[in-house]
Amino acid sequence: MDQGRGIVGHVRRLGRQTLDGVARLGRAMLFLLRLTPGLPVLFTRFSLVIQQIYVSGVLTLIIVLVSGAFVGMILALQGYNTLVRYDAQSSLGLLVALSLVRELGPVLTALLFAGRAGSAMTAEIGLMKATEQLAGMEMMAVDPLKRVVMPRFLAGWVSVPLLAAIFSAVGILAAYVVAVSDLGLDGGVFWSQMQSGVSVTNDIMGGVVKSVVFGLVISWIAVFEGYDARPTSEGVSLATTRTVVSSSLAVLGLDFIMTAFMLRGL
């Protein structure tokens, strides 16, 4: 639509985009509400959820394992380099574990998940819409929200916390290997320092809470963008991009908010 040129045009466009954004948020919210009656699919058609956990969780496992190992090793090297200046290299285990469990594990896993599984989810649902598969289901008296969208949403939500835990665990193990074999630290000190400094209730539960929230938000964005996509190939590719961009931004933004709350002991 032509909004005219000059400053007035810009202001109009800006206003229009803002309104569009708010409307989009509202649509996403309503979509989530429309999704909730499909929740029993978890019990009635559990195999559908299992199948989607395979697609979004198991197939993302490789990239999570590899990234987790590398991040752990990098943390060990960088952390050692800094700590050794204060003769505090015995705290390396603590540093690595806290970084992974509280921040890097949940956040990096969420970002990887958005790029690998979230985008695939959007593309799949968008393509099913573009090729009339969803309409076909509706005409076969099958609710695509229950049959297609809900299993993917639930599977994504469940997968992220599990992947994040695996990411952190692998990262810590990789850091341990580097610390002991390469940096010559004592393995016992590595673990004992970690254990005395990492609290299960604050640090580990905090990380789990974060990854549960990230899983919910990414899966929500991914299925919404797919379902809301214009049913054309451009529409689907646009939606896929949007899933990665908005879920990454949402993850980082929410991480900041949750970290702020957690560090203030709320």
């Binding site: 090729t131 509706e138 005409m139 076969m140």
Partner: peptide, 19 residues
């Protein structure tokens, strides 16, 4: 409506097969 649709079949132009 869903009960009624069970008694209707529809063939889409794109066939709409589940890929």
């Amino acid at each position: 409506l869903f009960a009624l649709r069970r008694r209707m079949g529809m063939l889409f132009q794109s066939s709409a097969l589940l890929t």
